[in-house]
Nucleic acid binder design. Structure first.
Lengths: 153, 153
DNA sequence: CAATAAAATCGAATATTATTCCAATAATCT
DNA sequence: AGATTATTGGAATAATATTCGATTTTATTG
């Protein structure tokens, strides 16, 4: 992982469809050398995949909500049951086990407020072990997720 | 946006490097028809780009923190100054203007606790207008961001 | 319901890009 | 310095994307 690898990663994190020859120019390498480095970053696990970024708004998802979840207990079994249920709920876009106040932080996208109400009632509140939920609505995304900061420090 | 488009989107959201011919098979179309639909989804804005997904752990970023920010005031000027500063801080991976308790929700990834302390002191606490910050650490990602839920409802 | 128009599809030809391979160069080690 | 190893560059090949015209399907209208 030298300076060139960092450049490669940050370009690919922005646009992974650019031809290797173009990327090679940007980082100052030949196509084949650049290609080899990319393959090493893939097999080394630094690059975990290539995905299309979808526009939530364009797909009709206009609101985004962060939900803090507190469970009845923090027993291993309670946590496990909760997590199994989370994996099965497509409405939940993301889930973290947290230190501090709440036990879990969920992230949900919904078509509109009515849609969210439905998700809240039919999916979230039915998750096993939930004692308390607090929803926080995102009014506007100031800075969308731009990936892992591959900066040299 | 019919059922086939939905399939295309959800496959591409998982893996955008698969050959169009492979994707075409999966959705039951010829290569050229599938190609045409993809181009329409791109120009229609449903697909906003193609990016490499980097593995934060593999790049040495072992911790992830959600930071709730409360500002001194909610005047337009205060908000604007804050947001301008956020855009310039590469340490901040994501930022939302929120309804409810806190004014903003930030997301930060850091190499370790010492690294985060440094970010907290040198970057976050120097953002203009900050009255209060509350950091919540993710202990484990139960379910990583899997994209916009392109399910038929 | 039939006739027409519009849109979507398919398969083949072409263009672009990825991948492989080997000789040459640069970096590392003793 | 000399030997060894890793990295690079360029050309040949393989794979994939893109284009195009003919055909089929779907939608529209009288």
């Amino acid at each position: 992982m030298d300076r060139i690898d960092v450049k490669i990663l940050s370009y690919l994190q922005e646009d992974c469809r650019m031809p290797i020859s173009t990327l090679a120019d940007k980082v100052g390498l030949s196509t084949s050398a650049c290609h080899r480095r990319i393959k090493l970053l893939e097999s080394g696990g630094q690059i975990s995949g290539y995905v299309a970024r979808l526009d939530a708004k364009a797909l009709g998802y206009s609101i985004e909500i962060f939900v803090e979840i507190t469970l009845h207990s923090q027993s291993e079994d309670t946590l496990e049951q909760f997590e199994i249920a989370v994996q099965k709920a497509p409405e939940i876009s993301e889930c973290h086990l947290m230190a501090g106040q709440a036990d879990y932080l969920l992230r949900v996208v919904a078509q509109n407020v009515a849609d969210y109400e439905q998700i809240h009632r039919n999916a979230l509140s039915r998750l096993p072990g939930v004692a308390h939920m607090q929803s926080s609505f995102s009014l506007r995304t100031v800075r969308p997720w731009a990936g892992v900061p591959v900066i040299q420090r």
